[in-house]
Amino acid sequence: MSAGLGNGEQGPGGVPVLGQRVLRPRQQVEDALRGAVLGGTLKTGDQLPAEAELARQFSVSRATIREALSALQSQGLIRRVPGARGGSFVQAVDHHSLGKVVQESMHNLLQLGSLNFAEVAMVRQYLEVPSVVLAAANRSEEDLAELREIVQQQKAASVDDPVVPELDAQFHTAIARMSGNRALASLVYALHRESEPVSYLELSPTVGRKTVSQHQRIVKAIADQDEAAAEAAITEHLKYLRQHIKAATEKALKD
Rank of each mutant, 00 (worst) to 15 (best):
A84D: 12
E51F: 06
G86S: 05
R24W: 11
A84R: 15
Q47D: 04
P82M: 14
V37N: 01
V102L: 15
N138G: 05
Q111V: 08
E67R: 14
A137H: 08
L110F: 12
Q73V: 10
T44L: 07
D143I: 00
E30V: 04
L144D: 06
Q125D: 10
L54M: 15
V101W: 03
M106H: 06
L115F: 10
V90H: 03
K100D: 13
A71M: 08
G40F: 04
G87Y: 02
H107D: 14
S70H: 12
R34N: 09
A68Y: 03
E30I: 06
E51S: 10
A84C: 01
E104H: 13
G113S: 07
R80A: 05
L33R: 08
G76Y: 00
R66C: 06
Q91P: 00
E128S: 06
G39R: 05
V151I: 15
V101R: 15
A32M: 07
V37M: 08
N116T: 09
E128L: 06
L144N: 01
A55M: 03
N116G: 09
R34I: 04
V133M: 13
L134W: 08
G99D: 04
G39P: 05
M122P: 00
E51K: 10
R56W: 09
S88T: 15
F117R: 12
R85M: 12
L23C: 00
E119C: 02
R24P: 02
Q125C: 01
T64H: 02
V22K: 14
V60D: 02
K43H: 08
S140Y: 04
V123K: 03
V90A: 04
S97G: 08
R66G: 08
L98F: 09
T64D: 04
V129F: 03
G76W: 00
Q27E: 15
G40I: 13
G76R: 01
V132Q: 01
E53L: 10
R66T: 12
G83W: 03
H96A: 10
S105E: 14
F117M: 10
Y126L: 09
L69F: 06
L115P: 00
V101I: 14
D46F: 12
V129W: 02
R62N: 01
P82W: 14
L72P: 04
N138Y: 07
A136H: 00
L147W: 03
V22C: 05
S61N: 05
L112P: 02
A137M: 10
F58K: 04
P82E: 15
E67N: 10
G86D: 08
E149Q: 07
V60I: 11
E30Q: 13
Q111Y: 04
V133A: 14
V29Q: 00
R80T: 13
K100Y: 11
G40N: 11
A32Q: 09
S59E: 15
L38R: 07
D31T: 09
L115Y: 07
A71S: 14
R62P: 04
A55S: 15
Y126D: 08
Q111N: 07
